[in-house]
C-alpha cells in the first residue's frame, strides 16, 4: 500500500515536472538570455552562452539532464543567481508554509463556525446572513483586497503595515505579519465552498439513520456526527483547496513583500529560470499530494473498510 502510494507520488511528480518543462519550453524566450540582459542582443553571444555552460541544445536533452540531477538529489542552480535551488527553497519555503497554513487556518476559523451554526439552524435569518457574508468575502479578489487593506492601514491607522518595509521593529510589528495571512485566508476564494461543503455534509449526516437512532436514545449526537460530518469533509476541503491557497500566496507575497516561494517563482517565471520554477513546482505538487494522502489516511481511519477495498 505504502509502496504503491510512493510510486504513484513519484509518477505524479514526474508528470508535473514534464508538463511544466514542456510549457516553459513552448513559451517564448531563452532562459539563458537573462545572463546577457543589458547587452544589445547578438546571435553569436547567445550561442556562446549555451556552449560555455554546456547546456544541451534540445529541450528533451535539457529535461533529461535536469532529471539526472534530480535522481541524484540535486535540484540544480538558478540560472539568474547561480544559487542552489534546494537551498533557496529551504530558505523561502518556511515563510510560504507559514503563510499558506496560517491562511488555511483563518479560512477554517471563518468557515467552520458558520457551517456549524447554519447546519444546526438552517432556516434562521442569522444563519442566512452569515452564509451570504461568507459567500461575499470569498468572491473578493485577493489582489484587490491586499491594496484595500494596506490603504486602510495607512490612511486610517497611520501605519505602514509591512514587516519588511519597516525601518526598525515597530511596536506590535509582529501583528503586521498576520495581515497577509488574514487577507489570504479571507480572500483565497475557498471560504464559501468550505462552508457549503461542511454544512451540506454535516446536515446530511445529521439526518442519517444512525444519528437519528443515537438521538432517539438520547446519546450525544455530535460525537457521532463529528467523524463523518466534520472530519471527512474538512480534510476533503483542505486537500482539494490547497492549490488555490498556494496560488493566492503568489499574489499576496507580491503585495505584502513577503519573502517566500511565491515571490521567487514569480521572478523566476519572468526570467524563464527553469531550475527554480521546476523546483518550486515539484515542492508545490508534493505538498498537494501530501495533503491528499493525508486525506486518504484520515478516510481510512474513519472508515477502515475503504483501506482494504
Amino acid at each position: 500500500m505504502a509502496a504503491r502510494e510512493l510510486a504513484l507520488t513519484a509518477l505524479l511528480l514526474l508528470g508535473v515536472s514534464l508538463v511544466v518543462f514542456v510549457i516553459l519550453n513552448l513559451s517564448p524566450g531563452d532562459p539563458f538570455s537573462v545572463l546577457l540582459e543589458g547587452q544589445a542582443p547578438g546571435h553569436a553571444a547567445r550561442a556562446s552562452v549555451h556552449e560555455a555552460l554546456g547546456v544541451p541544445t534540445t529541450w528533451y536533452g535539457r529535461y533529461l539532464a535536469w532529471l539526472g540531477n534530480i535522481a541524484r538529489g540535486n535540484l540544480g542552480t538558478s540560472i539568474r543567481t547561480g544559487v542552489p535551488v534546494a537551498g533557496e527553497i529551504a530558505r523561502a519555503g518556511p515563510n510560504t508554509l507559514y503563510l499558506t497554513l496560517g491562511s488555511l487556518l483563518v479560512t477554517l476559523l471563518l468557515a467552520v463556525p458558520v457551517a456549524l451554526y447554519s447546519a444546526s439552524r438552517a432556516a434562521g435569518a442569522l444563519a442566512r446572513g452569515l452564509r451570504l457574508a461568507v459567500y461575499l468575502v470569498s468572491a473578493v479578489p485577493v489582489f484587490w483586497l491586499g491594496y484595500v487593506v494596506i490603504y486602510l492601514f495607512i490612511h486610517r491607522f497611520g501605519v505602514f503595515p509591512l514587516l519588511s518595509g519597516s525601518a526598525e521593529p515597530a511596536r506590535h510589528g509582529w501583528l503586521y505579519g498576520l495581515l497577509p495571512i488574514v487577507v489570504l485566508g479571507v480572500a483565497n476564494g475557498t471560504v464559501s465552498e468550505v462552508t457549503r461543503h461542511l454544512r451540506g455534509e454535516l446536515g446530511r449526516v445529521l439526518t442519517e439513520d444512525y444519528i437519528r437512532t443515537a438521538r432517539a436514545k438520547g446519546a450525544p449526537v455530535w460525537r457521532h456526527a463529528f467523524k463523518e460530518g466534520f472530519l471527512l469533509p474538512m480534510t476533503e476541503m483542505i486537500a482539494s483547496k490547497i492549490p488555490f491557497v498556494i496560488g493566492g500566496a503568489i499574489i499576496v507575497e507580491q503585495v505584502f513583500n513577503w519573502p517566500g516561494l511565491g515571490r521567487m517563482v514569480w521572478q523566476a517565471a519572468q526570467d524563464r529560470d527553469f531550475p527554480v520554477i521546476m523546483g518550486i513546482a515539484l515542492v508545490a505538487a508534493a505538498f498537494v499530494r501530501l495533503a491528499s494522502l493525508l486525506r486518504a489516511v484520515i478516510y481510512a481511519g474513519v472508515n477502515p473498510r475503504t483501506a482494504t477495498d
Partner: peptide
C-alpha cells in the same frame, strides 16, 4: 538595499519612512 515586489507599495514605503 531593500527589495520590493510591487512598485506602488515601494512608493508607499517611502511615504511612510520605511525607506529613505
Amino acid at each position: 538595499s531593500r527589495p520590493f515586489a510591487d512598485q506602488n507599495i515601494m512608493t508607499q514605503a517611502m511615504m511612510f519612512n520605511a525607506i529613505d
